[in-house]
């Protein structure tokens, strides 16, 4: 059942992605990207990533859509007609896609417990995090403690992005 859902949701995501590509009304595109994001969040729940799903639903489907709509109040809502499909782009995409698909033939299969990724540091996190860090949610332990540097850097990225947006859009009180 869950496997069927996995296939259906991925199929719907492909449809949404292609619709984003074809539609000219940017309002529809913004709403579709929110729906696409929400489908992604559902998929993460199926794949056991509840924390990620939570974040995606709040950030990707919520804030990103709101920002996109906020932008559309400031810029034209229709994409210009009559741009020809880019043959070079199509070729690049086809070539890159086939190379990547060829590369996946070496990947471990879906859900394979013997995949290399599950035998590196992850077992140690699962086994020792209760004694070493404490929280039952291993994702929190890894995020805030084992990989605290990453999260510090990322918080700084958010900080910088907010300052960047302010610098670009907020009107200064003083005239230059």
């Amino acid at each position: 059942m869950i496997e069927l859902l996995d296939i259906v949701i991925l199929g719907m995501m492909v449809v949404a992605a292609l619709a984003v590509l074809w539609l000219r009304d940017l309002f529809a595109v913004a709403m579709l990207s929110g729906a696409y994001s929400l489908m992604g969040a559902t998929l993460y729940v199926l794949l056991d990533a509840v924390d990620v799903a939570f974040t995606e639903a709040a950030v990707g489907a919520g804030i990103a859509t709101v920002l996109m709509l906020g932008t559309l109040t400031l810029v034209p809502r229709q994409e210009k007609q009559g741009k020809k499909p880019s043959l070079a782009g199509l070729f690049t995409v086809a070539a890159t896609g086939s190379l990547l698909i060829w590369a996946t033939l070496d990947m471990p299969e879906y859900g394979d417990p013997d995949a290399p990724i599950h035998h590196h540091v992850a077992p140690r996190y699962m086994k020792d995090s209760t004694a070493e860090v404490g929280p039952p949610n291993v994702v929190t332990s890894v995020l805030a403690s084992y990989r605290g540097y990453d999260t510090l850097g990322e918080t700084t990225v958010i900080f910088t992005a907010a300052i960047g947006v302010m610098a670009l859009l907020a009107r200064g009180r003083r005239k230059p």
Binding site: I117, H120, V121, Y125, V142, D150, T151
Partner: peptide, 9 residues
């Protein structure tokens, strides 16, 4: 949990 942490950030 490791990919979850990476993707969360």
């Amino acid at each position: 949990p490791l990919p979850h942490v990476l993707i969360l950030t």
